[in-house]
Design a protein around this nucleic acid. Structure first.
Length: 424
RNA sequence: GGAGAGGUGACCGAGUAGGCCGAAGGUGCUCGCCUGCUAAGCGAGUGUACGGUGAAAGCUGUACCCAGGGUUCAAAUCCCUGCCUCUCCGCCA
C-alpha cells in the first residue's frame, strides 16, 4: 500500500505513477472516500468523547448515591447515534481499503519510463554466448534423450505443467538447491530459513498477492490457506507486525521452497520443458532494509543472485524493468536473464525488487529509529535463483555434441564428483 | 480427535461481587546524578494505531488487556464463537 499522505497531499505524484505504469485507477473517487472517511472519524470520536465524559459523571453520581436516571437515559440515545455513525465509518473505511489495496507501488525515479518489456533497459551483460560446432539442443530434448526428465509421466500423475525429474536430473536439481543455499549463507551473509509452504490470507495480503491476484494462487479446500507462489510471502511475513531494532538492519534471509502458480493467462505459452510450471523450486533472497539505503541493498542483492551464474560460468544479462513492466508491489526491479543456446533466447531466471515501504505498510513491519520514532522498513527480494530454469541453463550451456552434459566445476562437489551426465 | 487449564504492555506479573484501569509492582531499556574501575545506589522517562490542532516541539481525541460478536448507561473484568498455547489420553511421520 502506498502512503495515504500521497493521496491527500501529492495526488499528482500518484497520477503520474499510474500513467507511467499504464494502470487505470480512479483517483478522484479515492480522494472523495478518503475525505468522507476522515470526517466520519471526527464525528464518531466526538460523540464517543461525549459518552466517555458522561460515563464518568454517572459513575460519580452512583457512587455518591445520587440519581442518574436522566443521564443514563441520554446516554442510551447517544449510544444509538454512535452506532449509526460507526456503521457509516466502517463502510467508508472498507471502501477506502478496497481501493487502496489495489493501487500499485510508485516507481522509483531511476526506473526507465516505458510501456512494455521492449522498453526495459539492459544495464549489464556478463560472459559470452558459448560457441558450439554443432546445433545445440533445447533442454527438453536433451532431458528426454538422457532419460532425466519424464514429462509424459508427470502429466499422467497430475496434469500439464508439472515435471518429473529422474536420476541424475533429480540430483542436479538437488545439487543446485544446496549449492545456492551454501553460497548465500556462507559467502553472502544470509540466514537460512525453511518456512511453511502454505500461508493464510493475511500473509498473502501483506506482500501484495491479495486481493488483486487471487486467480494466480492455488487455494486449499476446507481451510483458508494458499500454496505459496514464492518464498517471498512466508519469509517477508516473518517480521509482520513487528518493530525491529535499527541496528539489526539489514536482515537477510535465504530460503529454498517450492513455488505454486496457476499461470492463468499463459495458456499455450512455454508448454515444453521446465520453463513454466505449476510447481517449481526456487531459492529466494529476502532483505529487510533501512529506508536510507534500500536501493543500495537492491544492487547488492542483485549481485548476490548474479554470483550464482558467475560461479556456474553461464552468460547472462541484467535489465532494469521499465515502468510499464514493473510488478504491482515493486518500486524498482532488475531481471536477470540467462542465455539458453538450445532455444536461442534470453530467459528470466531471477527478478530482484525493492518494494520500498509498500509491503511493510501492509504487513506492519517497522523499526525504531535512533531517537525513538517508529518507521516502516523497506523490503526487498529476488530469486537466487529459480532452480528449474537454472537446470535448463546448465543443460543447454554445458551440452556436448553427443547429447551428454558436462557438470560445471562449481557443482561437482554437490554431484558427488560426477563430471558428466549421461544416459544410464 | 477426546478431557482439562490458560491467553494482560519488550519481558515477568497484579488486576473477577463491571465504573476511579492504558492498566499496580518488578525486570529490562533510555537519559541524568552519584560512586577512583566493576557492582550497587538515587531521580526521571519508557506501548501501538488512527484522527484533530500546530511551521515544529508539543498539545489533544478515539481505539486497543488474543480476535470477532453480544449483554449493559458503562467490560481487561460477564456471555457466545473462533484462533493460539500448555497438560493428560488417543492417533501418527
Amino acid at each position: 500500500m502506498i502512503d495515504p499522505k500521497i493521496i491527500r497531499e501529492h495526488i499528482d505524484v500518484l497520477e503520474k505513477a499510474l500513467a507511467q505504469r499504464q494502470a487505470a485507477f480512479d483517483t478522484a473517487k479515492l480522494r472523495e472516500i478518503d475525505e468522507k472517511r476522515r470526517s466520519l472519524i471526527v464525528e464518531t470520536e466526538k460523540l464517543k468523547n461525549e459518552k466517555n465524559v458522561l460515563s464518568n459523571e454517572i459513575a460519580k453520581l452512583k457512587k455518591s448515591g445520587a440519581d442518574a436516571s436522566g443521564q443514563i437515559e441520554y446516554q442510551r440515545s447517544l449510544g444509538q447515534r454512535i452506532e449509526a455513525c460507526a456503521r457509516d465509518l466502517r463502510a467508508a473505511e472498507e471502501e477506502w481499503e478496497q481501493l487502496a489495496l489495489v493501487i500499485p507501488n510508485i516507481p522509483d525515479s531511476s526506473v526507465p519510463v516505458g510501456t512494455s518489456d521492449e522498453d526495459n533497459a539492459v544495464v549489464k551483460t556478463w560472459g559470452e554466448k558459448p560457441a558450439f560446432d554443432f546445433a545445440p539442443k533445447a533442454h527438453w530434448d536433451l532431458g528426454e534423450d538422457l532419460d532425466i526428465l519424464d514429462p509424459k509421466r508427470a502429466v499422467k500423475i497430475t496434469g500439464s505443467r508439472f515435471a518429473l525429474y529422474k536420476s541424475q536430473g533429480a540430483m542436479l536439481e538437488r545439487a543446485l538447491i544446496n549449492f545456492m543455499l551454501d553460497l548465500h549463507v556462507r559467502e553472502h551473509g544470509y540466514t537460512e530459513v525453511l518456512p511453511p509452504f502454505m500461508v493464510n490470507r493475511t500473509s498473502m495480503t501483506g506482500t501484495g498477492q491479495l486481493p488483486k491476484f487471487e486467480e494466480e494462487l492455488f487455494h486449499l479446500d476446507g481451510v483458508d490457506y494458499f500454496l505459496i507462489p514464492t518464498a517471498e510471502v512466508p519469509v517477508t511475513n516473518i517480521h509482520a507486525d513487528e518493530i525491529l531494532k535499527e541496528d539489526e538492519l539489514p536482515i537477510k534471509y535465504v530460503s529454498y521452497t517450492p513455488c505454486f502458480r496457476k499461470e492463468a493467462g499463459a495458456h499455450g505459452k512455454d508448454t515444453r520443458g521446465l520453463t513454466r510450471l505449476h510447481q517449481f523450486n526456487k531459492v529466494e533472497l529476502v532483505k529487510f532494509a533501512h529506508p536510507d539505503n534500500s536501493f543500495d541493498e537492491l544492487e547488492g542483492l542483485t549481485l548476490d543472485a548474479e554470483d550464482v551464474l558467475k560461479r556456474l560460468n553461464i552468460h547472462y544479462r541484467v535489465s532494469a524493468l521499465c515502468t510499464g513492466d514493473l510488478g504491482f508491489s515493486s518500486a524498482k526491479t532488475y531481471d536477470i536473464e540467462v542465455w539458453l543456446p538450445g532455444q536461442e533466447i534470453y530467459r528470466e531466471i531471477s527478478s530482484c525488487s525493492c518494494f520500498t515501504d509498500f509491503q511493510a505498510r501492509r504487513a506492519k513491519i517497522r523499526f525504531r529509529r535512533q531517537g525513538g520514532k517508529t518507521e516502516l522498513v523497506h523490503t526487498l527480494n529476488g530469486s537466487g535463483l529459480a532452480i528449474g530454469r537454472t537446470v535448463m541453463a546448465v543443460m543447454e550451456n554445458y551440452q556436448d555434441a553427443d547429447g551428454t552434459i558436462n557438470v560445471p566445476e562449481a557443482l561437482k562437489p554437490y554431484m558427488h564428483g560426477l563430471d558428466r551426465i549421461t544416459r544410464l
